[in-house]
Amino acid sequence: MTAGLFTRLEGPVTFALPTRALCVLGLLLGLVAVVLVVSLMTGSYALDLPGVLSTLTGNAPSAIADTVVWQFRFPRTLASFGAGALLALSGATLQNVTRNPLADPSLVGVSQGAGLAVVAAIVLFPQLPYGLRPVLAFAGALAVAALIQWISMRRTGGATMRFILTGIGVAAFISAATSAMLTYGKIDQAMAALGWLAGSVHAAGWSDVAVLGLALIVLVPALFAASRPMAALRMGPEMAVALGVRVGRARVALITLSVALAAAAVAMVGPLGFVGLVAPHLAHRLARSGVGLHLGLSAAAGALLVGAADLAGRALFAPIQIPAGIVTAVIGVPIFVALILRRQGSPS
């Protein structure tokens, strides 16, 4: 946040590029590309590197290779990248707005709200078109976000920690409601919902990639447009007011954006835990940067995290596939604990 601001304050001549952050961003994107290629190679029908490259350029060595890569592995890998980037951006936004390093869409119940809405739709109205899922997920997630805000903000202004605790309670409630919904539903619908709830990209096709891509195209520019008020909010409401930000309006707009980002990802691949917590933190540790670049770094880290988690989940115990959501939770929790241990009295 500070690099750009300070260079402008110190004088118009200095135009220091955040070199380290840009290098890290390039490195992360390179790793994403590596994960993509390895992911395309790995599976029950193994392909070597030239095979993958020639399939991608349209000269598949065999018809099977063409189908496996283009119909299954490529959309699946892209979906994991997209979902990871969306969740990371959602988490980064939520952390900046609530000024709470522990805020994560899956921890405070936003993902679960989206999940409940989708499961309710699958179980109660199975004939509902697939395309409505993101809308329902957004409505559910927004309702939960509003509820938590309402509960935790009413007593005192800066209730950052109460926000998290309230979210944990609300998440427990929604998880129980979702499970109850699954008991009530017919078994085949319940199974369809259950696979999705574990947070898995294994069934992702090009339509999912299209929705995720659309969400990124629509929401990311909005987010970058709002990065200035976000930077101000990160310094605290008093400072934000002093900088001329309408705090109430900016907060509502940014939380809505964050919820929309998480809802798009959850609607397509299910609630992937702790990505929104880990990726922004990782980005922060790798390179200090302004809010805008930090968002970019977070998105790249999130894409890398979920892509690698999906790859690990299907390669480690092959032929059994561990959903990516489980891998991200197992990676994310130790980092969450480390954050609890490092947290000072007030978030930095």
Partner: peptide
């Protein structure tokens, strides 16, 4: 209360994920 609940939530998420994984295996 805050750190206790957060630590409890962390354990719950971690072991819950492992239970789901064991379930699938």
């Amino acid at each position: 209360p805050l750190t206790l609940v957060l630590a409890g939530a962390a354990i719950t998420a971690f072991l819950g994920a492992l239970i789901t994984a064991a379930n699938l295996l």
